[in-house]
Design a protein around this nucleic acid. Sequence first.
DNA 1: CTGTTAGCGCCTTCAG
DNA 2: CTGAAGGCGCTAACAG
Lengths: 337, 337
Amino acid sequence: MSTRRRVTITDVARTAGVSVATVSKVVNGRYGVAASTAERVREVIDQLGYSSSLVARSLRSSRTGVIGILVADFEPFSAEILKGLSAEAAGSGYELLAWSGFSGHAGREGWEKRSLNQLAGTLIDGAVVVTPTVVDADAGIPVVAVDPHTGPSGLPMIDSDNFHGALVATEHLIALGHRRIGFLAGRPGLQSAEERERGYREALEKAGIAFDPELIRVGGYREETADGASRELLTLDDRPTAVFAANDITAIRTMKVAVDLGLRVPADLSVVGFDNVPESVLADPPLTTIAQPLHEMGAEAFRLLLALLQDRGEPDTHVRLPTEFIERRSTQRPAAG
Amino acid sequence: MSTRRRVTITDVARTAGVSVATVSKVVNGRYGVAASTAERVREVIDQLGYSSSLVARSLRSSRTGVIGILVADFEPFSAEILKGLSAEAAGSGYELLAWSGFSGHAGREGWEKRSLNQLAGTLIDGAVVVTPTVVDADAGIPVVAVDPHTGPSGLPMIDSDNFHGALVATEHLIALGHRRIGFLAGRPGLQSAEERERGYREALEKAGIAFDPELIRVGGYREETADGASRELLTLDDRPTAVFAANDITAIRTMKVAVDLGLRVPADLSVVGFDNVPESVLADPPLTTIAQPLHEMGAEAFRLLLALLQDRGEPDTHVRLPTEFIERRSTQRPAAG
DNA sequence: CTGTTAGCGCCTTCAG
DNA sequence: CTGAAGGCGCTAACAG
């Protein structure tokens, strides 16, 4: 397949009969090159189709003009963040490099740190890390976290009002008449996961419903981890009549599991999600959920990072965006009133 | 912000009291290092949080284990391709690097070639290019194109049955009773854009409806370019009662423009899109469209590229996937029967 | 104005 | 078993 080698600056220099330094100057528009020489070099560049290697260039010079978006996976949540960020970055002069650091690696653990180490300082000038559980406070470059882990990270961060959203979601189910409400928890260690659980508990308490630890299972935000958990929940002797899943993906998964078990949604089981990723509308039935302004979160992350890169803006900023309740068709009154 | 420098192999070597070569061997699991030394080095690595720089590594060795997905932008279409590709790539041993090569650059022209040149040979082992209009036939690495430009490229490619999809979309409008049907064309140069126009014309001809060049405007697949075009279409003296837009994004945009002009969709204007990106369901009203199997296309692109990387598989493969008609609520019979 | 020199961080011979 | 040396493609000083 790959017969021809990549054309390097050396090839251009040789063909044009000048030194590599001269070519470099022409490419970067530095002064100190005769117009005629520059012209000839440019011709050769066009003819050979040369373009400087990002890798070599970034190894040498500290600034690359590239911003990294580090995600575990390209799933619906990170994809929406990416869209929002991309729209905001257009015309900023920065190129975007989205990196999926998880794929193939043994442990899901520490992908954020590993990815950051691999790219920071050389390839990228700054990074936005999506749902990190561990991050180096100081990676050597500005870093902004979207929906990060619990506890102080020292990182500027963007998230949404997870507690309030979860409260509203659970209150919606309670208002419908549900009393046994299951909770499919998120990824342990993530702040959003904890806040959503807190919102769930708070709503229960406010309504005077006793908290039953049996009704909480860890869905982990991911399809693969949600199946077993929701199955456990739905096969309890006294199974819940409603489930609040900590994100849409696992909520949709729960609906699938319910159907497999012969339950109808929402007739036999109400389900509420969180995020409002596009997939939630496509689900059957369309999912009632709590919307996070994902595009706005991506855009805000970019703005924050840009401020950091330009040495303005507080490093300990915390931007919290509001959530919104979206009622669709996966919830209704419980069968037995 | 960036106080501490990135930790390099030299730091590890110095701390562990060995040479960089030894550290390199430990990292890459090469033989020829005493167990005790290796152990000590590993400890230092953990302690310092070292991880080899992708840039430096890839500059030196030809293989990086990274696959690039080159897009102009992270918009709904490429995001779906990305999701499908990512799911397929999980566990393959390859890391994914999605690169948005357009942002900030002067000309939209030639982003594919530029991006490929910048990354190929150094950073990535292979690439999937999404909707390229120009590509170097031989970039030095295996390349797969998704929904590429017109004419022979010499590249393995994935697309869907654009002609048939467009035919079905237009026939749907005709069957509803529409006679003046506008077409909002796609990005010139892309094969999909041409095929969709061909399908539109073919349907008209089969139905014995005279083709009116006034009813075709170029939407260019993008929001920014679609606004003016659809406005022109909808303000014609004898305006169309239905519009078939070459993709969902511009179809949704057309609905917005229609509303701005005081038209109701679908009562006064029917609209059909193409792609079935998640946004089409979220639109108001939900968009009738032609579905492309976007996730499958991404997955297939990865499979093809993998085959190429492993020196199996034909370089001139062309995978064409079927489309599917999805009726939602943006189309109905024309008002005046 | 142009070429030479010295690395950026890493990996790979090749000696010790 | 370990370390020193060279070079990947490029840029920034510094000579000429």
